[in-house]
């Protein structure tokens, strides 16, 4: 196993809700946060320590840019490591992406080409990062708005090979598969079928929004769509019970709405006969 998260539904916790979670201790099996919001010290970290005292925690990085050809950002990795030491999370994860050139950081999750050379490079960078962090990462498949002319390996096979060679686990984002199917014509079910059963350590579900020209944007700004709930059932049928996380990053509704939506993910797990 790549994580010690419970095989239950968790919720992505954003700063506007953290006080309410501390005060009301809602019945959620675990929480996931973006570590970058807790780098350094102060009120954010103090609040997160209180959450961690009551719940298993996952640190889900968005800023490492593991696949950047200029190499790893040692300062960023060190701050991530400090947070791991401070919080002893049940899981740590990042994305299959890059974010920097030598001149500029784009603060976004930019897609890598699915080529043999990119795979070699990711395996190398991931090995270095996992050495610094002291434990394996889960790596999340991306939603992508473009295909690259160098793409040669199907997404699912790329992820399977990355996991086999680097020892990382996979964080399977079902909304991203769904968005990619619409934007780029990549089959979500083919990706599911290509992933090795033991490699997947966590599942993400979220919502997306449509741009005027028909492009789907992975904004995490709406409830989960029905097609993604269907994918969740398909994924759980294939991989068995896993930690399932609801992500919501923009147009944040009241916490109660997200708890309600999280309980639907728990119901999907319960149908497999699993209890948290």
């Amino acid at each position: 196993m790549h994580t010690s998260l419970p095989l239950a539904a968790g919720l992505g916790l954003r700063l506007p809700h953290i006080r309410e979670v501390i005060d009301s201790r809602p019945a959620v099996a675990w929480f996931e946060v973006h570590p970058e919001n807790y780098f350094g010290g102060g009120a954010n970290l103090a609040a997160l320590r209180r959450v961690r005292a009551d719940y298993p925690l996952s640190l889900h990085g968005v800023g490492m840019g593991l696949g950047s050809a200029v190499g790893l950002d040692a300062g960023h990795l060190a701050r991530f490591r400090d947070l791991i030491d401070a919080l002893e999370p049940a899981s740590i994860s990042e994305h299959l992406c890059w974010n920097r050139t030598g001149e500029e950081c784009y603060n976004d999750l930019l897609p890598l080409p699915y080529s043999a050379a990119a795979l070699d490079f990711m395996v190398e960078q991931l090995g270095r990062a996992q050495d610094v962090l002291g434990r394996p990462l889960l790596i999340e498949n991306l939603s992508s708005y473009v295909s690259l002319v160098d793409d040669a390996i199907p997404e699912g096979e790329f992820l399977a090979e990355l996991s086999r060679r680097s020892g990382c686990g996979l964080l399977l984002d079902l909304n991203n598969l769904h968005v990619n199917e619409h934007n780029l014509g990549r089959s979500a079910h083919a990706a599911l079928a290509a992933l090795p059963l033991q490699a997947v350590g966590e599942i993400h579900i979220a919502g997306f929004e449509e741009r005027d020209d028909g492009l789907w944007l992975d904004t995490h700004g709406t409830p989960v769509r029905e097609a993604v709930w269907d994918l969740l059932d398909a994924a759980l049928a294939r991989f068995g019970p896993l930690p399932v996380l609801l992500e919501r990053d923009t147009k944040l509704p009241p916490l109660a709405d997200l708890l309600q939506e999280t309980s639907r993910a728990q119901a999907a797990l319960d149908r497999l006969g699993v209890r948290p």
Partner: peptide, 10 residues
């Protein structure tokens, strides 16, 4: 340009 993957440093 941003220089860090942590936007709080921008």
């Amino acid at each position: 340009p941003s220089r860090s993957g942590d936007l709080n440093r921008y």
